[in-house]
């Protein structure tokens, strides 16, 4: 990758990776929309959607087709250009974020080493934070451009909430960077690919437990999920920032939100749970099976965090807005700073 000039083969490989990653992301969105309702049904002791296809498997397809053929309502008072652009501003950055996450060990085919990661940036973590902060634009512009009271309140709330928790999220990750000494996500994974004290996997969760708790709480707030889903609190704001949206534009908001779930689950896996590392196995000695094993390990870990998102959604009640801001500013930030100090002091003592 380092040499100047791109061969035709390299471009093809990149294109293949891009299509596979986006395809799997979109497929996961479909599975999540179904899974969310099925798991809700399971938790609340009722059926979820189970009529379209076996066990309701084709429900997401039916939903998608229906969204395309729904009437496209653009309120007469809305700012048209921004109103149409806002869903794109949510979905676009969401699709881009996955680029720097390594989803498997390096694959070597006929003497060519292929990284299972779209782009191996040396500023990987910063790239992710940059795109995460972009997605707030879509929400706040969508809320503002609708020119209606509920969306405006939803947009404002989401802006305030997302920027508040972005600070503690950024501070929580600093512990990882201190341990790894790199912003490259493949370095973060390689660093976790050993054993700690000879028996524990060298995963950052064991070195940064406090950091992980801060990170996961901030991630739930960043993705506007229960217990922090105040921007779209149905009982008080109807639907929040997307109240005035219909058809596929509404679905774009939803897709962006679900892709953000996938990305943040993958990020938790990569930063704190060893990424594609399968514990106690040296993947590089197993050839193609090692690569397969690493991809499965990554998928299982990410899937667990996705399930956790759904599980939490149907288990916990919603915060009050002052509690939300209080937690973000008065608890998370001091804790995150404390985590940095502890990490620094322990590392200098060892």
């Amino acid at each position: 990758m380092e040499q100047a000039g791109y061969a035709f083969v390299d471009i093809l490989i990149v294109l293949a990776k891009v299509i596979v990653v986006i395809g799997i992301n979109l497929l996961m969105v479909m599975i999540l929309t179904l899974g969310e309702r099925r798991i809700a049904g399971f938790i609340q002791d009722r059926y979820g959607p189970n009529r379209v296809g076996p066990q309701g498997m084709l429900q997401p397809v039916a939903d998608g087709v229906k969204f395309f053929f729904k009437e496209e309502v653009i309120p007469s008072k809305a700012e048209k250009v921004i109103y149409v652009l806002a869903p794109a501003l949510v979905l676009g950055p969401a699709l881009l974020t996955f680029a720097v996450i390594p989803f498997g060990g390096p694959l070597s085919v006929v003497g060519k080493e292929i990284q299972l990661q779209i782009a191996e940036l040396n500023v990987g973590i910063l790239y992710i934070f940059a795109l995460l902060s972009l997605s707030v634009y879509g929400l706040v512009l969508g809320g503002w451009a609708s020119n209606s009271k509920y969306p405006l309140m939803g947009g404002l709330r989401s802006a305030a909430q997302m920027v508040s928790y972005e600070i503690s999220m950024g501070l929580a990750v600093i512990g990882i960077i201190m341990i790894t000494g790199s912003l490259r996500l493949s370095d973060v994974v390689m660093h976790q690919n050993e054993l700690l004290f000879g028996f524990l996997p060298h995963w950052n969760i064991f070195l940064q437990p406090l950091g992980f708790i801060i990170f996961i709480v901030a991630a739930y707030a960043e993705t506007n999920r229960v217990p922090f889903d105040l921007p779209e609190a149905e009982p008080e704001l109807v639907g929040g920032y997307h109240t005035e949206y219909s058809s596929m534009k509404f679905a774009s908001f939803m897709m962006g939100e679900y892709i953000a779930l996938i990305t943040s689950s993958a990020l938790m896996t990569t930063l704190y749970f060893g990424g594609w590392d399968f514990p106690y196995v040296d993947e590089s000695s197993l050839g193609i099976w090692g690569v397969l094993l690493s991809i499965i390990a990554f998928a299982v870990k990410t899937g667990f965090f996705l399930f956790l998102y759904l599980w939490v959604r149907w288990t916990l009640p919603r915060f009050r807005y002052d509690q939300l801001m209080g937690l973000g500013w008065k608890v998370m930030i001091p804790l995150a700073l404390f985590n940095i100090i502890i990490t620094g002091v322990v590392m200098s003592l060892l």
């Binding site: 395309f68 794109a88 699709l95 191996e120 679905a251």
Partner: peptide, 27 residues
Amino acid sequence: ELVPILVLLAVAVVIVAGIIGLTHLFG
């Protein structure tokens, strides 16, 4: 290193524009 990001950006723009354009056509 940034070329893959540009490829991804192009694909993402096509998808997003496609979604919003198609729903405008069909609805």
